[in-house]
Write a protein that binds this DNA or RNA. Structure first.
Lengths: 254, 254
DNA sequence: CGCCCGCTTGAGCTCGCTCAACAACAGTGG
DNA sequence: CCACTGTTGTTGAGCGAGCTCAAGCGGGCG
């Protein structure tokens, strides 16, 4: 066996309690913080009426489960705030975190009628929900929307292959450095500070994303800190001290 | 360093000589062996005129390079016969084989104006080529075609994440077993025998796909053979002796 | 207050990598 | 025709990076 099976997350929620996801009517795309990042951006401002009509707003507390691997899909989502993880689990508990979803990210990049991941909120999260049916109709009426979905699929594919390279051929330190740079870039796009990364997920989540154990993730953080690549007191708020030196660590092909 | 850098393939071709790719006029989709598998299948038989008009036929000898990572993209392709590999390389030579392409597979699943992979023919290969421009026009005229591309992107994404799970959390034996089963399934869809797999690629290619060294791939084959999961004399023609026992090895979530 | 969870650190071991050798084979050139 | 060379696949021996096991610390929550 290559890796210890992570202890399964509790079947529901975290911190003992599980609030049910809260549904609210959609309030309009105009003030949406994620609009410029999401598939919705492929539609001009004036043509969001159709979207708004179909959309529902959804709030998930940290630890809540949005969807289970293998369960039927009824909706697609756009994340407006917070963070979620997409998880696949083997029968014996070995876990892969396929990705972390943030504002603007799209949930529903599959042709399957079933969910391909279990999707869990890491922090308190808000989403826009669109029924699958309505989505199909919307895409026919607004081809740009379909193009937007395709574009997100292409990006997801590229990210997935980049992570394959990390998993297949890079050292723990390189994987973690690459991960931090990627998260920093994405959070900077979303208005975060350039050299700060928020990591609300646990070290186990990061490990299951990078193909490492918790211990190796922790040790790699310690090494990055000791050599002054990063600084942190709280393990969930990382300051990148030398992004360029970090980039040199990852030495990609560009 | 996690892995030895594979010696770079010769810049052009293999076996000393490199024939230039041969271009021929497209002869029509009717007799195409890959039609039912490819994006072209999303168009009804009668509406292939447009496709045929735009298409060119391309033949590559084994070892030839179709595209280089980072080079500008001008066309998309559908594979009609043979096999190719999609490769990404780091500056120091560490290599990832992102996938093996066979009849019906689509080349061009990216929104980038540049190629995301170096693409090399493993065996003699035939492709249909469509200029990028024409493709856009075709997709607007036939929305089903765009949907077909989206569907291929979804499948590629799923395959990529399945491989991520293998790379992150599975043993060499499990990775190889999963790989053989996947190749067998795909070749069976294409009319191959159910329990035979053709592996024209080298052990190094398989290693760079599964995140292993040549030696470990070879040893894993030997183990599978010793325990009668597979049988082979020629390392490129594998007979699966007990697909069900192999599947049990891979114990997925379904 | 006590328990549990998450993070970190240490000690030791194992599995897959590194290094090395060899056989089989194909292509090359004398 | 055969010696020579380079490539591919296989196997062995040994090593070290990352995993396993174990312990401790701090914070949050009941």
């Amino acid at each position: 066996m290559s890796n210890r099976a992570s202890p399964q997350a509790p079947p529901q929620g975290v911190r003992g309690h599980t609030e049910a996801p809260k549904r609210e009517p959609h309030v309009g795309c105009d003030g949406c913080l994620a609009r410029h990042l999401s598939v919705c951006a492929s539609l001009p401002q004036e043509e969001t009426r159709d979207l708004e009509a179909a959309a529902g707003k959804l709030r998930l507390p940290a630890g809540a489960t949005l969807a289970r691997e293998g369960a039927p899909r009824r909706e697609v989502y756009t994340v407006t705030s917070g963070m979620l993880r997409q998880v696949r689990v083997l029968a014996d508990g070995r876990r892969l975190v396929a990705g972390f979803l943030q504002a603007g990210d799209f949930i529903g990049l599959t042709g399957s009628t079933l969910h391909r991941h279990t999707i869990e909120a890491i922090s308190d999260t808000a989403l826009c929900a669109f029924p699958l049916q309505g989505m199909r109709a919307l895409c026919e009426r607004h081809p740009e929307l379909g193009a937007g979905v395709l574009d997100h699929a292409f990006h997801a594919l590229d990210a997935s292959e980049t992570n394959q390279m990390a998993l297949a051929r890079m050292t723990p330190l390189e994987r973690l450095a690459g991960f931090l740079l990627d998260m920093a870039r994405r959070q900077h796009q979303r208005g975060g500070e350039e050299d700060r990364v928020e990591l609300p997920m646990t070290r186990a989540d990061i490990g299951d994303h990078l193909g490492l154990t918790v211990e190796t993730v922790s040790r790699s953080f310690t090494r990055l800190r000791r050599e002054d690549f990063v600084h942190f007191d709280d393990p969930h708020h990382i300051e990148l001290r030398a992004p360029d030196r970090l980039r040199a660590l990852v030495q990609s092909t560009g």
